[in-house]
C-alpha cells in the first residue's frame, strides 16, 4: 500500500495515525505540509525515523523546495511527481486527509 500524508506533524496527528495503521512494507509519501515530517532534528523527527525501520518513506521534491526544507532525516527518499505516479502504479493508495 501507499499512504499519502499532507499535514504537518506539528499541527495534526495524521502522520501518527497513518503509522499506526500501516503494515510492514507499506510505502509512505509525504506531500504538501506533510513534508515537514521528514525534517531532521525536530521534535517530530522520531516518527519518520521509527517508520523507516519498516517502511520506505518518500517526500515530494516540489513541496520540499517550496518550503526551503533541505536537512532531511537519513533514509528518506526524495521523489518528484513522476515518482509519485510510479508509487501509485505499484500500490493501492490511501490519503490520510
Amino acid at each position: 500500500m501507499l499512504h499519502t500524508v499532507n499535514k504537518s506533524p506539528f499541527m495534526n496527528q495524521s502522520l501518527e495515525s497513518c503509522l499506526r495503521f500501516t503494515q510492514s512494507g507499506d510505502a509512505i509519501l509525504l506531500i504538501e505540509d506533510g513534508v515537514y515530517g521528514a525534517a531532521a532534528g525536530t521534535g517530530k523527527s522520531a516518527l519518520v525515523e521509527e517508520a523507516l525501520k519498516n517502511h520506505q518513506v518518500y517526500v515530494l521534491s516540489a513541496d520540499l523546495k517550496a518550503r526551503a526544507l533541505t536537512n532531511l532525516i537519513e533514509g528518506v527518499k526524495v521523489t518528484d511527481y513522476a515518482g509519485f505516479v510510479d508509487l501509485v502504479e505499484q500500490n493501492l493508495v490511501h490519503a490520510w486527509l
Binding site: N6, E32, A62, Y81, A82, V85, V88, E89
Partner: peptide, 19 residues
C-alpha cells in the same frame, strides 16, 4: 488549499507517463 495544485501536477505527470 494546495490540493488542486497537487492534483494537477499529479495528473500532468500521469499523462506524461502514458496513463
Amino acid at each position: 488549499h494546495e490540493a488542486s495544485d497537487s492534483a494537477y501536477n499529479f495528473v500532468q505527470a500521469a499523462l506524461a507517463k502514458g496513463h
